[in-house]
Design a protein around this nucleic acid. Structure first.
Lengths: 207, 207
DNA sequence: CCTACCGATCGGTAGG
DNA sequence: CCTACCGATCGGTAGG
């Protein structure tokens, strides 16, 4: 934070996450830092530099959190929940940066966009490896890797849109809840065909 | 399409979905229609009008598709998959509009934003009703309604980011695949504790 | 990090 | 739907 460039990136992250990249002006960012707009260019060369720095840090944080978990030898169910928890912890501790990464990274252009694309692919590959291992061990059903990964990453990524740091559940609890649903499904293990007239039975009982 | 305003909305939808709301200028939209930028204001009062019209139509399409399905009396598993299919069909048939709705609706301001917020809440309530019915019938496990709905809508909404009309699967097939995973989970029904040393055993066999 | 400023472009309007 | 144009604001620069 004593580093002026880092402070600039943090200010930009806050504003980009609130108003979007194009909705935030260089002057907004300067004002947030208490300096004049021209002064930003002592530390950056363009507005897109700020977007890239944010997305760079956030995307790396997701990979750094997942890699050690994939490398462990715990049971697949446990690894899946830990990986989910790691993902949600990154969102919760880097909420603004994660929002910018997940919502605005497509605005990057040229080589930088490709770098982030590669990093996203790497992250997805880590998840694929985790799932593949679970299938190989016979723990996970031999489902489509692509679809299983899409389910998990959809859920995990969507978190940035509703996560509230002041909410009642911490990231580990959220991961546990999501993980159970993804691992064991919505259908009750003991559920047979639908119990007809359950409502009727309820109505016939005293409330 | 003979209606100039409808043509304008379609052009705006295409451009907003490609470059974002702020990334698209009034002049871009005019050029797409082959007219001058000033001429747009014969049909709209502001740029935000176009965003609102797009988001209005798309958000209503999701509700219109889901309502009749919730009203049927099929088994909960079937309703869930049909509802998922309806959602993905809306995305596939209104791909650009859906992208704008799901990615840019937060840029709406004032009363219009509230209208769309209410509509989103209505849509979520329809899903909650579907899930609640499945629990009441004893088909679905008594999970957290909020989390089950979040899983489903995360997966369903994320589709707009990767769906490719030229891809090998149609919306119904995608819904079937996602639905199975959500209903029955990733863990194999017959899966016990992880089979230890499966790798070793594999290594000891001829390849 | 500031002052002073640039060329370009923005959403939108007046009058036809 | 067009011409002509507006005030404001944009990202960015020069020179200190």
């Amino acid at each position: 934070m004593d580093n002026p460039k880092a402070a600039l990136i943090e200010a930009a992250g806050k504003l980009f996450s609130q108003k979007g990249y194009y909705g935030t002006t260089i002057r907004d960012i300067a004002q947030e830092r208490g300096i004049r707009s021209g002064s930003l260019y002592a530390h950056i060369e363009s507005k897109e530099d700020l977007l890239y720095e944010i997305v760079d840090v956030a995307s790396q944080a997701f990979i750094d959190a997942l890699e050690p978990i994939v490398a462990t030898s715990r049971p697949p169910q446990e690894k899946l929940i830990q990986a989910l928890a790691a993902h949600i912890r990154v969102i919760s501790t880097h909420l603004e940066t994660s929002r910018v990464f997940l919502h605005e990274w497509l605005l990057l252009t040229g080589a930088r966009r490709h770098i982030i694309e590669d990093r996203r692919n790497h992250y997805e590959a880590l998840w694929t490896a985790l799932l593949q291992e679970g299938i190989d061990r016979g723990t996970f059903a031999p489902v489509s890797l692509r679809f299983a990964r899409l389910v998990i990453l959809s859920v995990a990524n969507w978190v940035y849109l509703w996560y509230d740091p002041a909410g009642p559940m911490n990231p580990d609890q959220i991961a546990e809840e999501f993980g159970r649903l993804i691992l064991y499904g919505l259908v009750h293990p003991t559920a047979g065909p639908p119990a007809s007239n359950r409502e009727t039975r309820t109505l016939s009982l005293p409330s």
